[in-house]
Design a protein around this nucleic acid. Structure first.
Lengths: 197, 197
DNA sequence: TTTGTAAGTAAGTATTACTCACCAATTAGA
DNA sequence: TCTAATTGGTGAGTAATACTTACTTACAAA
């Protein structure tokens, strides 16, 4: 029988932790269900009691990690009144979080987007909420006169998200250090003040 | 015996075309070697005569597509003397190319980066050359006084590449239309003139 | 006590990426 | 010209892997 999903039994949690642990050194495709089970100290069958597929398990891991991420972000922007300041906090917090939580970053930026199922997952819902939040702040900034009224909010969001991701993705792939405040400073200067002399 | 790689026999080319064709509708992981062979009209064994692995095949496909892409770009920027103009041409050409060649875009942006082997591939070398070219143009722009001298060239490149990618990735995943000139215009305005009012 | 369900096991199975021994035709060398 | 090697291609394997299914045990409530 399948699990109803109301509770979070120890076995289930151990499986989630095992995959997270294994992905510290391996990419998702090269981690096997047998390894996950062994590392969790349970049998392979149990994985399929709690998760529909190996990918479903991955999306749950991402979902858990993204939940924490979203909390951190929301916590940090409350109190800031300027829209640009809020956006800078989001940029910096995102980079910091990716730098500190490489498995999270790898899953989010490199492992899930290749398959359609992801876009029906709960994890993706959270990503949308995060992106929506940025859009709200941009519109707020346009409303208050902080941001140019003719800047396309959707494009500005794409640039911000793209800059965050691209600023991290290389360092995540090659396990290089990331100086979040300094990178944020550079990004923010270019995006808000422009690169043209 | 393994193939030496000097020639490009019909079977080899048919395999490349088959994967490209199959990836028009399916993501890489859900395409099987059996399907590739059948669609190419050859046997499964032949795939491994010409390619070391299924992934190696993917990287070769990307390599071929990226070669064309690089040619297109280089062709278009010759003649332009302003650095910013060159960068705008690169942004617009990239978006146009991704829009017109969705399989190429999906492979490059969504399918290869999750595995380390990719970063040793010939395809990745081409990506580096493309990125290097952008950096050269940025430095040229700083030298000529078009671009702010205190803008970090590496970060500016990340923002440009990030903006291009993020401007396309959603539309590629969800098969939406992409208006390259208009998106380029918006991106360029924000990056070069700044978003701040 | 009984009944139902949740937690977990163990032994499968089908599929899939990949291998290997072989064939036929062309080319090169002696 | 005979032969030896190389190239293009086949087809029947194999090991591994994601997933299934029938089963056991623990336990909570009625």
């Amino acid at each position: 029988m399948k699990h109803k999903g109301k509770t979070n039994p120890p076995g289930r949690q151990k499986i989630i932790e095992a995959l997270t642990r294994l992905m510290w050194t391996n990419d998702f495709n090269s981690v096997t269900t047998a390894e996950i089970a062994e590392s969790a100290g349970v049998t392979e069958g149990l994985i399929y009691k709690y998760f529909n597929s190996k990918k479903d398990l991955l999306y749950r891991v991402l979902n858990d990690l993204f939940a924490q991420f979203n909390e951190t972000i929301l916590e940090r922007i409350t109190g800031k009144s300027s829209a640009i300041e809020k956006l800078e906090v989001i940029i910096c917090s995102s980079i910091e979080y990716y730098a500190a939580n490489r498995v999270f970053a790898r899953i989010l930026l490199l492992e899930v987007r290749n398959s359609q199922e992801y876009f029906n997952s709960e994890a993706y819902e959270r990503v949308r909420a995060y992106a929506h939040n940025i859009l709200v702040i941009i519109n707020e900034g346009i409303g208050s006169g902080e941001i140019k009224p003719d800047a396309d909010p959707l494009i500005l969001r794409k640039i911000i998200l793209g800059a965050i991701e691209h600023a991290c993705v290389g360092e995540i792939i090659f396990s290089r250090d990331l100086d979040a405040p300094s990178v944020t400073q550079s990004i923010s200067t270019i995006i808000f003040n422009g690169a043209k002399a």
